[in-house]
Write a protein that binds this DNA or RNA. Structure first.
Length: 554
RNA sequence: GGGCCUGUGGCUUAGCCAGGAUAGAGCGCCGGGCUUCUAACCCGGAUGUCGGGGGUUCGAAUCCCUCCAGGCCCGCCA
């Protein structure tokens, strides 16, 4: 109801003031909605804002559209107070399945996220990309969009050539129970140590890269095998994170299908394109001073060339192209966009997130300095199991383990998504292992409490008589859920929904503390049960949007 | 050196893009609350020059300039 009411007030204000988009905000402690348009009009009308506010209130009250809303001027502020119809209508909607979902939208979206190089396991930095990307994909689906999620497999880079060199020169016995991605990391780290010892190896690595680009069958197969080995591990980790990709797109396909050559052939005709041995684009007109190199002087293409081919393909097959990339890709991201513009192709919207580092400094796969996502999941699950065991000795080990896995994932995903992407963070075990307040499990717990009440209550007929402060505050927040979804999607900011869900749990816990549900009588009981059902439903939708399981018991 | 991002109580963080009414939370600290719907909870208290300075504005955490600090980028790597 928040969205509809907001729009109705906005329209009435626009009509009353002549301002196309009159300033209207959340009223906070003062009201449900508030406007400061009186300030904006003060100068041109040469009148004190309070007087304008008073006059506008008269006009708004006289109009037909806001009859159910109490409007008052408090000094220069115009405050809008919704009535009981607002909360009733909110609950009536929120008790229906799928609350907060939008009708189908015609815009087709492709979203790329994670896309880590297959030279070692996903670590706690990579999964920030995964969690942001996957949450965004869920948000878009909730908002009615068709979306395809892609993983771009960098299967022909220098790092992979190093892995291949390692596999062919260093031996790499599979260890008992070792995942493929961890095995690849072991080889990659060892190979890098060898290169450091003997820089002559670099020319052998270069040869691998030339061979794979030429399409030499044996080399292609070696690359493919190494990448597959790593990717298998990635798939397991991504599944454990409850993150789904619809398609894995292989970078080398854009060489083999000729797309890369075609893009380069088009670029060569541009005045910005220069060939002085290496082939590069001059993007200084776009404010980028760095040369954008596409082809080395030995004739092999650079990552950028394949990326142009990939993005051209995406832009032609989808209405919107969205990439989630680390902040280290900001420069090449703007180079990519500028070059696609020169070609007249659709350009991607890029969400950059800042780095995750360890207390001792930056992570490095090559140096073996990282905390893998697998290790994180294992450790957090272990802790979660201890917590469940401490609380629920009535459950058997298997049930406790299932809850622990779900709680661990909630803790991990929430801990990552709650922070805005533009903040760099330092990984902290203590925070990762905290399941209290402002955490995923905290929100799950509120949901489980609601489920428990509903289960004990049995059947009831919905009622909408809310009277207590904590009831009304809760219902008003439930009213904002569709608005929260829309905002998060519009701004491409998934953390907004994390904040929303936490606030909803906060409000529910306060209500839970002060207003007994099962012990209340008559219409009060029915109304509170309706409120609990609406909350449970909204929490479930919010949690699922965050990729977190809405547990019924924990 | 240049570019981008960040700087909010001891620690973590929301709010900043679309400036307004006493700057929200959590952790930690102090004090309370389980014979009552799951205490992974709730209530109360202490703690803030919103990095510094200047400017715009009736009004700035929010916009502009500048300085300081931290992160990232500046490869014929990806």
């Amino acid at each position: 109801m928040y969205l509809e009411t907001f729009d109705a007030i906005s329209r009435a204000l626009a009509a009353a003031t002549g301002i196309a988009k009159p300033h209207l905000t959340d009223g906070g402690a003062h009201a449900d909605f508030a406007s400061t348009v009186a300030f904006d009009l003060a100068k041109e009308r040469k009148m004190p804002p309070a007087k304008i506010a008073a006059e506008l209130v008269e006009i708004l009250r006289a109009g037909p559209d806001l009859r159910n809303i109490r409007i008052e001027a408090l000094g220069p502020y115009i405050n809008f107070h919704t009535g009981s119809g607002y909360t009733s209508e909110t609950l009536a909607r929120a008790i229906l399945p799928g609350y907060g979902s939008f009708p189908p939208q015609p815009v087709k979206i492709v979203l790329e996220h994670t896309s880590a190089n297959p030279n070692g396991p996903l670590h706690v930095g990579h999964i920030r990309n995964t969690v942001i990307g996957d949450t965004l994909a869920r948000l878009f689906r909730k908002a009615g969009h068709t979306i395809e999620v892609q993983y771009y497999v960098n299967d022909m880079g220098r790092q992979i050539a190093i892995v291949v060199w390692g596999f062919t020169h260093l031996g790499s016995d599979r260890r008992e129970g070792e995942k493929g991605d961890h095995r690849v990391a072991r080889v990659y780290i060892a190979a890098n140590r060898e290169i450091e010892r003997d820089p002559g190896i670099v020319s052998e690595v270069d040869r691998f890269m030339q061979e794979v680009e030429r399409g030499d069958a044996k080399t292609v197969s070696l690359f493919r095998k190494a990448v597959d080995e790593c990717l298998g591990g990635f798939r397991e980790t991504l599944a454990a994170l409850n993150a789904r990709h619809d398609r894995f797109v292989w970078e080398s396909d854009f060489i083999r299908n000729g797309d890369t050559s075609r893009v380069i052939a088009r670029l060569i005709h541009l005045p910005e394109c220069h060939d002085d041995g290496k082939l590069w684009i001059d993007l200084s007109d776009a404010g980028i001073g760095k040369e954008y190199v596409l082809r080395r002087s030995d004739g092999t293409t650079v990552y950028a060339a394949r990326d142009l081919a990939y993005h051209t393909w995406k832009g032609r097959n989808f209405d919107r192209v969205i990439d989630v990339l680390g902040a280290d890709h900001k420069l090449i991201g703007s180079q990519l966009i500028a070059t696609l513009r020169l070609l007249g192709e659709n350009t991607p919207e890029i969400i950059h997130f800042e780095f995750v580092s360890l207390p001792e400094g930056a992570m490095s796969t090559r140096a073996g300095k990282f905390i893998s996502a697998d290790e994180l999941i294992e450790e957090v699950t272990r802790r979660a199991y201890d917590e469940v065991t401490a609380r629920r000795d009535d459950l058997d080990g298997q049930a406790r383990q299932a809850i622990a896995r779900s709680v661990a994932l909630a803790a991990i995903r929430y801990d990552i998504v709650r922070v805005s992407p533009e903040k760099s963070t330092v990984f902290d075990w203590e925070e990762a292992l905290d399941f209290e307040r402002q955490s995923g499990p905290y929100i799950q717990y509120a949901h489980a409490r609601a489920c428990s009440i509903l289960e004990k209550a049995g059947d009831f007929t919905p009622a909408f008589a809310l009277a207590m402060e904590s009831e009304i505050a809760l219902a008003r927040h439930i009213a904002k859920f569709p608005w929260a979804i829309r905002s998060a999607v519009r701004d491409l900011r998934p953390h907004l929904i994390a904040t929303y869900a936490r606030e909803l749990a906060d409000l529910f816990n306060v209500f839970y503390q002060f207003e007994p549900v099962l012990k209340s009588q008559g219409e009060t009981r029915a109304s509170r049960l309706t409120l609990v059902l609406a909350t449970k439903n909204t929490l479930k939708e919010a949690l699922e949007t965050l990729g977190i399981e809405a547990l019924a018991t924990m």
